[in-house]
Write a protein that binds this DNA or RNA. Structure first.
Lengths: 184, 184
DNA sequence: GGCGCCTAGTCACTTTTTTTACTATGCAAC
DNA sequence: GTTGCATAGTAAAAAAAGTGACTAGGCGCC
């Protein structure tokens, strides 16, 4: 019942196939909501059955046909109603931090390697987010955009994603330097 | 199967009752892993049955008796083995950001209020994390601690929590200022 | 002296999420 | 000429997580 709100938010400005939506979840929505493709396909079916979405089939010649989903009026109402509710507190699940919490009882070289991988992944995400943000901004400065732009919501969520990944990188580097010092 | 690693990491340096553990999850572990009390009680039972934890009953006079769990040798092994695995990528679920993503279709006053509440909550968490960090540091400076302290793991995870909550506050204030400008 | 919160849980049920394994076609590289 | 990757999904089962209600004594407060 919660995934559907993220789906509505993702589809409201841009209709998508399940496959496309899964890709968008992987590269940008992941910033505030994570979901597997399977979960999305199921949710899309349910949402269509409940009238929140409509689907139209697009025939393709060189590829399998696809179904493009868009938000119905009833879906819009649901989204608006959702924005009136109290959002649940953020849930985070980060296995890397669990490993770090247990550092004194851990296999330190493995953890070190995992931190490195996390830094690398955060660099890539940061890069992707910054590109998306640049697309939203177009030729405008942040100032101009904030005064006149119309994709304020995505601008703000992307900004949050960017600062999150930056902090990941900074933190990872701190962690590596501490490890280098304490577990040479 | 994933919650258990967080439980092991939380119990390895300090045995706890289920109730206490739930409190610790609420106030500090939440930083990298979220869980409800029910989930914890269930997981503790299973882990005891599998020999990862042992429980001893502590009789209390003015309160209900409690069962204190601690990590067994087998639990230690499991924790170490976990630190050798590739951590799964972070999963985040943040309804507030979903609401913000859908800003153009949202009930803006409600969202504004939710952002305010988030800022307030982050302030409180920041405060709590900083106090915990001060406890870990004791009278030492960060420098001294990093060179000689022994709770490096918790230091690092708390640091991550602190920067996360700071960024939440900064982001929330940016979001409010944008809203004030665009939806007066 | 009643209200509500704190401690310390248990039980039953429902929902959500994850995992694993399938079906197909097309394209590029080797 | 087959291996691997991208597109575009479906199905079923198992595991994990979340919700709500309940027990029961103690404490403080007004």
């Amino acid at each position: 019942m919660a995934l559907r709100n993220a789906v509505l938010a993702a589809l409201i400005d841009r209709e998508s196939s399940g496959y496309d939506l899964a890709k968008r979840f992987r590269v940008s929505v992941a910033n505030f909501w994570t979901s597997t493709p399977q979960q999305l396909y199921r949710e899309l079916e349910k949402m269509e059955a409940e009238g929140l979405l409509t689907a139209r089939v697009v025939k393709q010649e060189k590829r399998p046909d696809k179904r493009i989903f868009s938000v119905t009026l009833s879906g819009r109402d649901a989204l608006r109603a959702f924005t009136q509710q109290d959002p649940k507190p953020t849930t985070v699940r980060d296995e890397l931090l669990v490993q770090v919490e247990a550092l004194a009882h851990a296999d330190v070289p493995s953890v070190r390697e995992s931190i490195r991988a996390r830094i690398e992944q955060s660099r890539q995400r940061l890069d992707a987010y910054e590109k998306l943000l640049a697309e939203i901004l177009g030729p405008r400065s942040h100032e101009e955009f904030l005064a006149t732009g119309n994709r304020i919501g995505p601008y703000l969520t992307l900004s949050r994603g960017i600062s999150f990944e930056r902090e990941n990188i900074t933190w990872g580097e701190l962690a590596l330097s501490v490890l280098a010092r304490r577990y040479p």
